[in-house]
Design a protein around this nucleic acid. Structure first.
Lengths: 214, 214
DNA sequence: GTTGAAATTAGTACGAA
DNA sequence: TTCGTACTAATTTCAAC
């Protein structure tokens, strides 16, 4: 379980945008490795090899390849927030002023209590999840810190009463065990997406080129 | 959302509710350990000891204590969903029919594509996050799987365009470096929570004692 | 891609401060 | 409690197949 402290931090924080080309072709064995690693991030490569059913050398090669390729972004410990003193979790839906996304992002980076932030379609522009010591702290954060960011036009806050489930990571093999040969599912070019009965809340005005602007 | 089913899903997956008593008193050193571990879950205990500035033996003791106590819930690998073939992420806000939470939970457990589910205050009752291969799959999931659950009264779906940030885990020390001596922030008993300017979307009817009932 | 052996490292068990 | 050290067990690396 050696951990070369050096390196590995290269990957940007949560950047799903950017980096289109696939470097590594993931086969069934790779997915199996990811499956084991997502439930036990501290397993030794030797034990991993045994569980996956490959040789140690092979496991080392694939393990390293997955890290180098970025398929594994990092290893982390899941902390009990309540035990750590942050018992209150809230979701804040933010409406962002057009063309101020850059500033919004910059401000977010300054807020360590923000655990997650995603840009969404729908009525609001972004959803952020925060962990705080108490409800009052959420209030302070929303009214005094978020509201003071010019990029923030409006917010809407809800509290999380219980986290029913949190899976370490969802993999395609969960759904379709015979996924091995399939490619990452390219959207049919120019095809109409069937949004039939699903109530789809469309993006707010002027958000077309949002991703590029960030 | 009355919960007469005296369920008590006991060891539920993301149970923030339940378990009030603190078993371990976390000091500054414990938090420092958590801080290192959340960024590098695979670091060796020896290296951890060095980074935190304690002896190896001490590091082993504390490390084990944190795991046993549940402050560290598990170690996991963060996977790049796009690379793994699940490039589409969506949030589905669900309105749940009263007294059918148990069924709702049971159904969720059957859906491997669900990465996260939280019960919330506000207009909807729960938010679930799913990872899928394409938009059509989200559509199918919402209209054919979720809609067929009797417990689900209504849904509202938004897509995630970009995940701006995802912190491994937020800790109180991020905010207040001198947190060491503070206790986990008990809410002032009976005190009114100031929800002043914050737009607080209240819980739907009859959700007062939801936490206890789940 | 696999096996097996050497070198290194991790995990454990002690006594001492 | 924490530290330092010695001991044992395990892992990683590297070789040849």
């Amino acid at each position: 379980m050696i951990m070369t402290e050096t390196s590995r931090n290269s990957a940007h924080e949560g950047g799903q945008a950017g980096r289109i080309g696939i470097g590594l072709e993931l086969d069934a064995t790779h997915l199996k490795i990811l499956e084991v690693l997502r439930e036990n991030g501290r397993i030794s490569v030797a034990a991993l090899a045994e569980r996956v059913g490959i040789s140690r050398a092979n496991a080392y090669t694939r393990f390293e390849a997955l890290r180098a390729d970025g398929a594994i972004k990092r290893f982390t410990a899941e902390i009990d927030h309540v035990r750590a003193g942050l018992g209150i979790t809230a979701l804040i839906f933010v409406t962002v002023r057009q063309q101020m996304w850059r500033q919004f992002r910059a401000q977010l980076a300054q807020m360590p209590e923000v655990e997650y932030c995603a840009i969404t379609t729908g009525q609001h522009d972004a959803m952020i999840q925060v962990r705080m010591t108490d409800v009052a702290a959420v209030h302070t954060m929303v009214t005094e810190r978020l509201a003071n960011i010019p990029a923030v036009k409006a917010t809407e806050t809800v509290f999380i009463l219980d986290e029913v489930l949190k899976r370490p990571y969802v993999l395609p093999s969960d759904r379709n065990p015979a996924w091995s040969t399939r490619r990452p599912a390219p959207d049919p070019a120019g095809g109409e997406v069937p949004l039939g009965k699903m109530r789809f809340v469309g993006a707010a005005e002027g958000r077309a080129q949002l991703q590029r602007d960030l």
